[in-house]
Nucleic acid binder design. Structure first.
Lengths: 210, 210
DNA sequence: CTCGAGTTGGAATTGACATTCCAATTACGC
DNA sequence: GCGTAATTGGAATGTCAATTCCAACTCGAG
């Protein structure tokens, strides 16, 4: 506990090539873990996919858990980035629908295989890995934040009733997304996802003033 | 491959003690897999927990996948049974709230560790194990059915608007439960779960006639 | 150029796990 | 009571994963 916290993983000097290798490993690991889970993805698997040797992985991440943590952060950054700029402008019912719909289409495109990149990791790691859970908390917070902000802006503008609990509604929408994704993944149909988010957005809509 | 399909696992004659051993194995496996996931639970783990030898497990389930399938069915039966009779009487807003609230309390009691027994398995197994996915589809169907029936009864009685899509609402509620559980598990607080189900039930309530 | 840190390859180590085997035992129908 | 089938113990097998080691190599700063 004297080390500068295992959170930052103290960034040692990295060569240009080094940083590149590191990225390649994370991306390969993220892809594999999305399909097979973190536990179902072995270091040799990742070596092959990234075209690196075992020593490189251990050099950059210490151990498998370190890599998993890096993957969580990477998926969070990637997912959020790919939802922008929509994610930062969720201040109308139409924007909410459009944003959710896009995720539904994305799900259809991949045949509803695989759920949410973050949600799947969360379900697998929340109980067994304390440091992973912490990262996942902030992943969901970073995701929920923009939703809440959008709703808050609607409320500030007087479009949403004063009585609406925007924080709770944002949480409910995120939950609908997660649960909807899971059901869709199992049923191999995006219908459940669409119905789930649609119900919550309809509910939000019922708080519109006028 | 001449066996009568691996689905039914042709019930060979079981001794009284045999059936008991089989049950003990399933229960121990279910418990362990709930906490550590199916992949994170080893046969030796289960042996120790159930107090049986390896040959017994392979004798009754063939291989690990067979045991996993049995665990899915067991958890489905157990979860649904423990929700009855409430589950079969979800034909009022109050009943829905009471039923959901009970799951929230249960979550609190265990400190929000572990999510939904079925949802967690679903997230882990949906993509990699075709036969598991099939069982999970029916698990969710068996769960969603009573919800839909309750809503349909309300509608038949004229309490719920004709325009309400009871099937979609049932799916949305199940999704809220799943997503809410996941967020609660990660955040170690049942708040997200409660907000998620509350939003959907409020939405259902908005379809009440008069 | 020259040194030290960053980087890489690949073999070696250790341990766990899924599964198989076979021999011993027990239970139940007849 | 007998015998066949169910049940059980426990060791053996083979595979594969996580991690360690160390030697070779490369790159950038001075």
């Amino acid at each position: 506990m004297s080390a500068p916290a295992k959170t930052g993983e103290s960034k040692r000097r990295l060569t240009t090539g080094g940083r590149k290798t590191r990225e390649r490993i994370i991306e390969a690991a993220a892809e594999l873990m999305f399909h097979r889970g973190a536990g179902g993805t072995s270091i040799p698997d990742i070596q092959a996919a990234a075209g690196v040797s075992a020593s490189q992985i251990y050099h950059y991440f210490g151990d498998k858990q370190g890599l998993v943590l890096a993957v969580i952060d990477h998926q969070t950054d990637t997912r959020l980035a790919q939802q922008r700029p929509l994610l930062d402008n969720l201040d109308s019912i139409e924007a909410l629908r459009e944003w959710c719909d896009r995720a539904g289409s994305r799900q259809d495109e991949r045949g509803c295989e695989g759920g949410c990149e973050i949600g799947s990791l969360a379900s697998e790691l929340a109980d067994g890995d304390q440091s992973a859970r912490t990262r996942l908390v902030s992943a969901f917070d970073r995701w929920e934040g923009p939703i809440r902000s959008g709703l808050a802006r609607m409320q500030a503008r007087g479009e949403l009733s004063e009585r609406a609990d925007t924080a709770a509604l944002a949480t409910a929408l995120l939950a609908a997304i997660q649960g909807g994704m899971l059901l869709s993944q199992v049923r191999r149909s995006s219908t459940a996802y669409r119905q789930a988010v649609s119900a919550v957005i309809d509910h939000i809509e019922s708080h519109l003033v006028r």
